[in-house]
Nucleic acid binder design. Structure first.
Length: 1080
RNA sequence: GGGCCCGUAGCUCAGCUUGGUUAGAGCGCACCCCUGAUAAGGGUGAGGCCGAUGGUUCAAGUCCAUCCGGGCCCA
């Protein structure tokens, strides 16, 4: 796959009409075909990297004392990689590759998130056990070992994909959250929080399955929603201590679908801003006044009369009589009052919310917010009422509904009663209805850290910036305490031991501490190993047992900076030298995930952020705008993309997308294909072009070394080198700012400049048989060589494969001292001395003139081969005039005109018109803008010409100068003129015999070249051309332009009236035949 | 329900921070050119009530409000 100089010998050409090369005439380069099999090339590069140990070397070659720290955010070790992972892996590869090339040593250690519910669920499925009860019956030890085995076996899929993508990361020495060292550090982290008083145990209202006698995760709770019938009742609660708005004896109406929670009612929630109505109802001769949200009067009390309204705020504090009076003593602690609740809905129910804090999270939080630290839980683990509610003690809560309803009815409290058919969660394992129930839970007191979290967030450079301010910042400001315990099995354990008798609690921070207490030193810290380890209570000598919960696996992810190094038990110096990380990157969904937990833990432990730069990427959607879905098959298989287009294309496609601005991308295979067509193939074509002519011309590295210095090269060379150096400066600036999405677009622009302008304009200079100076040829080769090698390095982080291939072909193959991989080289730094902004802008002007000239040719049906006399550029802008003057040859050549002239006055070709410069005049004129705009439109060409020359004109009482107007040039009717901005170009379309014959000569060249191609001649083969024609113009063309034709088609001789001329060619004139015979 | 984000040409996206009157690019499409990069290359053209409505302003794709559709996270 790499070019070797050995194969170049036999094809070196020695053109007879050229001075001998100063080298031995042999090229160091071997011609490469214009087509390339990108996937196959990438495979070969992968092997090359293995052979030279490219990744490891790229790290080791950089100084150990100049480390750049990157943290890998671990993927869950289950399932196979999807596009989100490919995106993350690309970002996590591009940035470290760049900073490596900038001279830093970057260890890139892969991480595996091994714990948590997804793994457990998979194992449950595989083992055929479902839910906690069955797991415990099956045996926690066996279950956990099955989880461990599953994690071990998922690594292989990843290995292939990550390698194929070209990501350099050490997967042989990953950190894994299930390794004992990692888990011990997690203990240490937890113990630090404990010592700082940031850990407490409280309760959290969770989905609970009485069938499985266990709380479930939200994920599990969502697994089995069913439509089901439940009671739907409205109950009145009489006011016993009202206020100015709500008199004693009025009723507050609440609605519930869970009558079993009514005995637990401790408060009623009202929305402060909700409007409530006092409704008079006459029922069986009794008149009642009942309160509910105004919006719901129609629905709940259609026969009532609204007699008053009040806002929710007016209801607060009103005391009422609960429907079951088992916990009356709670009134002294603030219960049975109307409290302010958030998010009160008024589209169903009554707008007054029944609150049973043990059985609803909102209820719990609302009461706590109001300072009511009360919790009544009368439901046992099996879902039965306890003795706290004697009427139904021992009865399943759902089955008690009818009894409770009857009791309420007897008490005259039921306002309405019916059933509702709604979606309700069921236990995915036992099929029993889920309830919400307060469960003991461990918390980290994040609220105490909140201010510091917000402050330290200001030290983090977020890309895009708004994420840090808005999304993450808001989240931090609203942070609540973090529930870190899970009632599960496969995870790090909460390292708290508790005395059975006296409830003494001890948090252990290391295995050493465990050994001190218990005399045991386990080599594994999973639940099934730890739970049997007990020790006597230092206070009362009873047994200390570990609390049963495991840790939220996000706690481990957030502990990763410490735990991956087994800090503080090992690597203390290394940790201190490398914390916090320079760079991390994940997608938007990690705002509340990894980004958050990293930040919370490092703030708590070290009062520091844990990362300095964070690139947040968007979510990848399928092409139809929906989520990528395996069942819908609405996205291409990554393997198919690798095989069809290669990893470089996929990488560049993702980098050059809204994803790097944290916006969603509709993933499209066509987009990947487009990268191949617009980036990879054109770039490769240039390489092929270079090697083809370097070989044909026998250009060697020694020759390139003799090329003129850049400052002494032709303008087109200096231009492309200037553009390239500007690009280098831009790319460095954007990479330093982590704006990865701003890298590919300017790169595309350079490819356009290089291929469609530099190579196209310079093509003849590479062709030694042409009539060009040796120095000029070498300047062109050297410029193109330098451009390609520099450009390859600029692109190396994004396109590691193709650029490596270029490096091998253009550098390694010709220079024994070249670094063996492009990824071992240094990233280019802009050479300011090569940047000539005036030249760049002059060239841009000239290109725009040429583009306008082409337009004129097209619209007047004049083929480019037909020479024309004159192109006139009309401009009053001295910069434009200067640009044309210094590039006149370029314009005449590109547009095939004899001369280009510049003039300032528009004459009869163009009329000046103007629009107001709104940006300038708007603020000055305000409402008069409209009148002035009308006046400006009516200005004459002469008025405007005066303004264009620096004068002024009065419009609607305002003096307007050149900066106040936006001058345009409109072609006058009947002219061949194109106008844009400060200039116009006019084409003289007059043809005469001389021009026509010259055009014909060019056509003849083109036709003869086609014959050469048909004969499969090599680009440097010499020929004898014969021709025969009676056409007068043809004879004249050969007579007057024969030398030129011969030179163009490499004819050593042209024979007129050749009887062997038998190839008919069509030049739009009389019949012509030619013959082309190679000579050797 | 809340926070953040997206909605511009058939498709994928610029432009929105800092409002300025002719809204750009690429792909696709149509037509043309070139034929010594050739299973390439170049040019030209058609194609848009800038998600909707209301507001601010001399002026709104751009700012504000509401709504609709989609996404992520949270409830």
């Amino acid at each position: 796959m790499t070019a070797s100089s050995a194969g170049a010998d036999e094809t070196a050409s020695t053109a007879p009409d050229q001075p001998p090369a100063r080298s031995d005439g042999r090229s160091d380069f071997t011609r490469l075909p214009p087509t390339i099999d990108l996937p196959a090339t990438e495979q070969a590069i992968l092997e090359l990297w293995d052979d030279i140990d490219a990744f490891e070397q790229s790290v080791q070659q950089r100084p150990a004392d100049d480390e750049y720290v990157f943290y890998d955010g671990p993927p869950f070790a289950n399932g196979t990689p999807h596009y989100g992972h490919l995106l993350a892996s690309t970002t996590k590869d591009v940035v470290p590759r760049y900073w490596t090339m900038r001279g830093h040593r970057i260890h890139r250690r892969w991480g595996w998130d091994t714990h948590g519910l997804p793994v457990e669920m998979k194992v449950e499925e595989a083992l055929g056990v479902r839910g906690p009860a069955e797991i415990e019956e099956f045996g926690v030890a066996a279950f956990n070992e099955a989880c461990r085995a599953l994690v071990d076996q998922t690594a292989d899929d990843w290995d292939y994909v990550v390698r194929r993508l070209g990501r350099w990361v050490d997967m042989d020495h990953p950190y894994r959250t299930m390794d004992t060292d990692f888990m011990e550090s997690v203990w240490w982290v937890f113990d630090q929080l404990w010592d700082k008083g940031l850990v407490y145990r409280s309760v959290k209202v969770l989905p609970y399955s009485w069938g499985a006698t266990t709380p479930l995760s939200n994920f599990e709770a969502n697994l089995d929603y069913r439509m089901t019938d439940d009671p739907s009742i409205v109950v009145r609660m009489p006011v016993v201590a009202g206020n100015d708005t709500v008199p004693d004896g009025d009723d507050l109406l609440i609605w519930t679908t869970t009558p079993w929670t009514l005995p637990g009612n401790l408060a009623i929630g009202a929305g402060r801003d909700v409007t409530y109505a006092r409704v008079r109802v006459d029922d069986d001769g009794t008149t009642r006044h009942q309160w509910l949200a105004t919006d719901l009067v129609e629905t709940v009390l259609p026969d009532g009369d609204v007699v008053a309204t009040a806002s929710g705020a007016d209801l607060l504090g009103v005391q009422y009589q609960p429907p079951f009076d088992h916990f009356g003593e709670e009134r002294d602690r603030g219960a049975f009052r109307v409290l302010a609740a958030e998010e009160v809905e008024t589209d169903e129910g009554t707008g007054l919310v029944h609150m049973a804090p043990a059985y609803g999270e909102i209820d719990f939080l609302t009461l706590r917010e109001a300072g009511l630290d009360v919790l009544i839980d009368y439901v046992d683990a099996d879902g039965r009422f306890t003795e706290l509610v004697p009427e139904v003690a021992g009865v399943n809560i759902k089955e008690a509904d009818s009894t409770l309803l009857r009791l309420l009815g007897d008490a005259g409290l039921v306002v309405s009663s019916g059933t509702i058919n709604h979606s309700y969660p069921f236990c995915y394992r036992t099929g029993t209805p889920l309830i919400y129930k307060a469960v003991p839970t461990w918390f980290v007191e994040v609220t105490k850290l909140r201010d510091r979290l917000v402050e330290l967030n200001h030290d983090i450079h977020w890309v895009p910036e708004a994420i840090g301010e808005a999304r993450f910042g808001n989240w931090l400001e609203g942070a609540r305490d973090w529930a870190v315990s899970r009632n599960r099995y496969w995870g790090s354990c909460i390292p708290v031991w508790e005395c059975e008798a006296c409830e003494r609690q001890e948090c252990l921070g290391s295995i050493d501490e465990l050994e001190e207490r218990s005399g045991q030193r386990p080599d594994d810290l999973h639940k099934h190993v730890l739970d049997p380890i007990t020790y006597p209570c230092p206070d009362c000598d009873a047994t200390m047992r570990r609390v049963p919960e495991v840790l939220d696996c996000w706690f481990e992810s957030g502990s990763m900076p410490y735990a991956q190094l087994h800090y503080p038990f090992d690597n203390v110096e290394q940790f201190e030298a490398t914390f916090p990380a320079e760079f991390i990157s994940e997608s938007l969904d990690q705002t509340r995930g990894w980004f958050y937990t990293l930040h919370v833990l490092s703030t708590a432990l070290f009062d520091s952020p844990s990362f300095r730069n964070c690139v947040v990427s968007g979510m990848i959607l399928a092409e139809d705008g929906r989520k990528m879905s395996k069942s819908l098959k609405n996205y291409p298989d990554p393997g198919h993309l690798f095989d069809s287009y290669g990893a470089d294309a996929l990488r560049a496609y993702m980098m050059d997308s809204p994803l790097l601005r944290a916006e969603p991308l509709r993933f499209s295979e066509a987009g990947v294909r487009q990268i191949v067509r617009t980036v990879l193939l054109p770039l490769w074509n240039v390489v092929s072009f270079f090697t083809t002519y370097a070989e044909a011309d026998g250009v060697s590295m020694a020759d390139l070394a003799e090329a003129p210095a850049p400052a002494d090269r032709p303008e087109i060379d200096r231009w492309v080198l200037s553009v390239l150096q500007s690009l280098v400066a831009d790319v460095n600036r954007e990479m330093e700012g982590y704006h990865l999405n701003r890298v590919v677009t300017p790169v595309l622009g350079f490819i356009e400049d290089l291929t469609n302008w530099y190579v196209r304009r310079s093509r003849r200079r590479f062709w030694r048989s042409g009539d060009v100076e040796r120095a000029d040829t070498l300047a062109a080769f050297a410029t193109l060589y330098e451009s390609l090698t520099t450009f390859a390095r600029v692109l190396a982080p994004v396109l590691p494969f193709l650029t490596e291939h270029l490096h091998q072909v253009l550098e390694v193959a010709v220079d024994d001292d070249a670094p063996k991989s492009i990824h071992w080289t240094d990233f280019p730094q802009a050479d300011e001395s090569l940047i000539d902004t005036e030249l760049e802008s002059a060239m841009a002007t000239v290109r725009s003139i040429i583009s306008m000239g082409r337009h004129l040719r097209t619209s007047n049906d004049l083929r480019v081969r037909q020479p024309l006399r004159t192109l006139t550029v009309i401009t009053r802008d001295p910069d434009v005039a200067a640009a044309v003057a210094s590039h006149a040859g370029l314009v005449t050549d590109e547009l095939n005109v004899r001369e280009v002239v510049v003039r300032a006055d528009e004459g009869e070709l163009v009329s000046l018109t103007a629009k107001p410069n709104f940006r300038v005049l708007g603020p000055r004129l305000g409402a008069e803008m409209g009148a002035v705009a009308g006046g400006v439109a009516a200005l004459s060409h002469e008025d405007l010409a005066a303004v264009a020359d620096g004068g002024t004109v009065e419009v609607a009482g305002h003096e307007l100068g050149r900066d106040d107007l936006d001058l345009r040039r409109d072609p006058n009717p009947g002219t061949v003129v194109e106008a844009s901005g400060p200039l116009a170009v006019a084409l003289d379309t007059t043809l005469d015999r001389e021009l026509e014959v010259e055009g014909l000569a060019r056509d003849l060249v083109s036709r003869i070249q086609q014959v050469r191609r048909d004969l499969d001649l090599d680009v440097s083969d010499r020929v004898v051309v014969g021709w025969a024609s009676d056409d007068e113009q043809v004879r004249e063309a050969f007579a007057r332009h024969g030398d030129q034709i011969a030179s163009e088609v490499l004819a050593v001789e042209i024979t007129a009236d050749d009887p062997t001329a038998d190839v008919e060619v069509d030049c739009g004139v009389g019949p012509v035949s030619v013959s082309v015979t190679p000579v050797d």
